[in-house]
Nucleic acid binder design. Structure first.
Lengths: 147, 147
DNA sequence: GATTAATATGAAAATAATCTGGATTAACGG
DNA sequence: CCGTTAATCCAGATTATTTTCATATTAATC
């Protein structure tokens, strides 16, 4: 299951191209996102960063600034779960994928297929019940493209 | 484009079955949701309810409680747009549908088709650019089904 | 390695959506 | 119409997120 996440060198290159400094908090956030396979909330990223770095705590505000910067730079993508906080994960090079969230325990698993019927069949095989989904499209409309 | 939204009689029946009282604020919220074809935010519902009812204002807290009750009763469904507030719309009987949100002006249109390639082609024809989408699944996992 | 200019960070306060508790009012069965 | 109970209003509490500003850090230059 090779996901081809961004490397540290690619990361540094992206930051430098955009005149952004390579700082310790930014490297820490990248490290956490690289070592986790599920999308994380701001608060989870904050906890994990500080868990292994007790000498100098990174502030939650810095986590917010850092993750939002990564989203702007397209290093990270934002995932919205219904009734849940926003979550963030590294952009994968290879494939577009989705998620299945347990309505009770909130566990998140990745879904690798991309056709809805196929996906729901597969989720049933995995033992999921009461399956529903949310699909939203985003784009720039005709009127806004003119400006 | 008949959407077969819930009728007032069906609405009353659902409330009564669930031992909920039929109150003026609840009827007002239903009226607003019935007369709007796009999902609305709590604050938009609040404004619209009070626009035509200047004698007695309905409090925003009541809008929150009412809409959340409707969601619990499956009269209303919650729609999450990325970078946006939660929005709410009446559950339609006939068809499952999705939305297209303009990234600039935040305008929301309904999308009636349900195959992703078809949908994106259709959106391109409508003049949308820079299209992306978010798809999430929800369900109860094997472990949680046991309890 | 030291100097410096500019940016990033930490800490705390501001903001904004949403929720809650208590007193008041309205719904509805009798 | 009355009494019981639930719903509403009002105000204030929460919580996620953003902003402000003084201080610390980065990275370019010497």
């Amino acid at each position: 299951m090779s996901h081809d996440k961004i490397t540290y060198d690619e990361f540094k290159e992206v930051l430098q191209k955009n005149s952004q400094r390579i700082t310790l908090p930014r490297l820490e956030v990248l490290r956490i996102l690289k070592s986790n396979h599920n999308p994380l909330t701001m608060s989870e990223i904050h906890d994990k960063v500080n868990l292994l770095h007790p000498k100098k705590k990174v502030d939650l505000a810095t986590i917010y600034r850092t993750v939002n910067l990564f989203v702007d730079l397209k290093i990270v993508s934002e995932v919205n779960f219904r009734d849940e906080f926003k979550r963030y994960e590294l952009v994968f090079d290879r494939h577009h994928h989705h998620h299945i969230v347990c309505k009770k325990c909130k566990k998140v698993e990745n879904v690798e297929l991309c056709l809805m019927n196929e996906i729901e069949k597969m989720l049933v095989k995995k033992g999921y019940k009461d399956i529903s989904h949310s699909l939203e499209f985003f784009g720039v409309c005709k009127e806004c493209s003119k400006n």
